[in-house]
Write a protein that binds this DNA or RNA. Structure first.
Lengths: 222, 222
DNA sequence: AATATTTTTTAGATTTGTCTAAATTATTTT
DNA sequence: AAAATAATTTAGACAAATCTAAAAAATATT
């Protein structure tokens, strides 16, 4: 079975919006995809008849098992291309997403499996997100948000949960990227902002809005 | 300016059909693209309004200067991807075309220029066809068809002018691919077939229909 | 040169994915 | 609980790219 670019974009967006539990609403999806709610309803009907979606009128929706499998395939393609662009073509971290959005819709299983092999079966993309394998299995970092880690422990940034241009701008400004080692020096309970230090540099402040999206893991001794 | 996948496929097909001189007809293009002639006429009108085509009703057509530039851009993308698939992902010679057909429609100038660099600015794809550079310039082999080369001179296959599955099947059967060194031992004027020998192997016969599409160049001393 | 055949174009329909405007259902407020 | 507001769906339209069937133009045949 193969799906149109448009169907794939809907499936991917639904996957990202539905967490482990919750339902997704028409308006959320319409905002995410920048289409009108009426268009979303049309597509929902279509995906339902293809059994990719559990959906009843006015009730919200989630991907079915089959839908989730399809989503993982798309995400696999997206993240492998991101890895390729970053690692091999030397695109910068914040440029890869847009191009990968196009490449992910090229459907050839052989292409993706050979690309995976060529890249050395990477398990995480340049944003720190896990890359599903051929069977849809995804590795997991034991990762935590910097809002909850103990003070004065150096850890390594491994994931950024919001990849809008605005967010990437702030992170770039503060020299934070995947792999950056940092520690939280102080928490301000008034606004939940954090004082961060990278290496021996001058510490700086991160608002809660930003901090919520920055995740770290233990430093792996190599 | 950017063009739909469909427009790009028409432009590319017209480029291939129009040689250096001749006009292309609606039926030829319809056969090439496996669409109905009526659909071709619709697209011709559209490409004409976009000034990519010199076209008058019932008169046949050719690409305009602008159209040719667009075509060279598409061909550049196609052939760079073919090179990538063959060289880096180890696809076999006869598998690359189909996948490259999809990849060629990903439009990011930066992607293509970085890919070009990553591949070491190759000048010929795995089929021996030249890859246009950023400016649309194409290198040319001094190549000739095996139907016209002198007897008993070993030369190197550098191009196959027909890349259908049927053709590739015959070539594979006879162990001919880009880079193969062969000589013509005899010409049979009755049916214009050729007796070919590769190295010290047993000679074999190639029909004119096949031979017409096999091109060779002088062996470069390295 | 008149007729037959082939090629090309026109006219109108279809599919996919989108839209606007209006109607319906659900949720929130008073 | 009724009214107001918000979310969702329906109905009908549109653009892109295709199709079929019929008309028009070009070419070939007798």
């Amino acid at each position: 079975m193969t799906y149109s670019t448009s169907e794939e974009n809907y499936i991917k967006a639904i996957y990202h919006l539905q967490g482990d539990e919750g339902m997704v609403t028409t308006n959320e999806l319409s905002a995410e995809l920048k289409t009108r709610p009426a268009s979303v309803t049309d597509m929902l009907k279509k995906l339902k008849t293809k059994k990719l979606l559990n959906y009843e009128k006015y009730q919200g929706f989630r991907l079915s098992n089959d839908g989730r499998k399809v989503a993982l395939g798309i995400i696999r393609r997206h993240r492998l291309w991101e890895f390729f662009l970053s690692e091999k073509l030397k695109f910068s971290w914040d440029e890869v997403h847009e191009v990968a959005e196009q490449l992910e819709h090229v459907t050839s299983k052989k292409l993706i499996d050979k690309l995976d092999e060529f890249l050395g079966f990477p398990r995480f993309d340049p944003h720190g997100d896990p890359i599903p394998d051929q069977h849809g299995k995804i590795a997991t970092h034991e990762r935590v948000c910097i809002t909850v880690i103990p003070l004065n422990h150096v850890m390594e940034v491994c994931h950024v949960g919001n990849q809008t241009a605005e967010m990437l701008d702030i992170l770039k400004h503060n020299d934070i990227s995947i792999g950056t080692r940092l520690e939280v020096r102080k928490k301000f309970n008034f606004d939940n902002s954090l004082e961060i230090r990278i290496g021996r540099h001058q510490p700086f402040i991160l608002s809660e809005a930003v901090a919520r999206h920055v995740w770290v893991k233990k430093i792996e001794r190599s």
